[in-house]
Amino acid sequence: MAKFFSNLNAVLVAAVILLIVVIVGFHRDIAGNDMMAYLNGLFRYLHVLFGIMWIGLLYYFNFVQIPTMPKVPAELKPGVSKYIAPTALFWFRWAAAFTVLMGLVIAGSPPDTYVVEALTFQPGYRLIGLGMWLGLIMAFNVWFVIWPNQKRALGIVTVDDALKAKSATTAMMFSRINTMLSIPMLYCMVTQGVLGE
Rank of each mutant, 00 (worst) to 15 (best):
L136H: 08
I17G: 09
A107R: 01
A139P: 02
G108F: 14
P184T: 00
L154N: 12
M172N: 10
V16Y: 07
W147P: 02
K164F: 10
I17K: 06
E117H: 09
I156T: 11
G32L: 11
F140T: 03
A14R: 10
F5E: 11
S182D: 05
L57C: 06
M53H: 04
I20M: 12
V16R: 03
R44C: 01
L19A: 12
T120M: 07
F90N: 03
F63H: 08
V105A: 12
L127W: 01
F174H: 11
V115T: 15
R44H: 08
E117C: 04
Y38E: 07
P184F: 01
L58K: 00
V11H: 05
P148C: 08
V116Q: 09
T158S: 14
N7H: 10
L104D: 04
V11R: 11
A139I: 01
V157T: 15
G56M: 05
F144K: 06
L181S: 00
P78A: 09
W54D: 00
V13A: 10
F5L: 14
L136N: 09
L154Q: 13
I137Q: 04
W143R: 00
A97M: 04
A162I: 13
F50T: 09
W91G: 07
S6Q: 15
Q192P: 06
L195Y: 04
N62C: 15
L195I: 09
N149E: 07
D160Y: 12
M102E: 02
W54R: 01
A168S: 13
V159R: 13
A171P: 13
A118P: 14
A139D: 01
L19K: 02
T113N: 13
R28I: 05
R176T: 06
A171T: 07
I137T: 10
A85L: 10
P110S: 15
Q192N: 15
L49M: 04
T169V: 12
K166H: 05
K166N: 07
Y38Q: 03
A14W: 12
W91I: 08
P110T: 12
Y187A: 08
L163I: 12
N141H: 01
P70F: 08
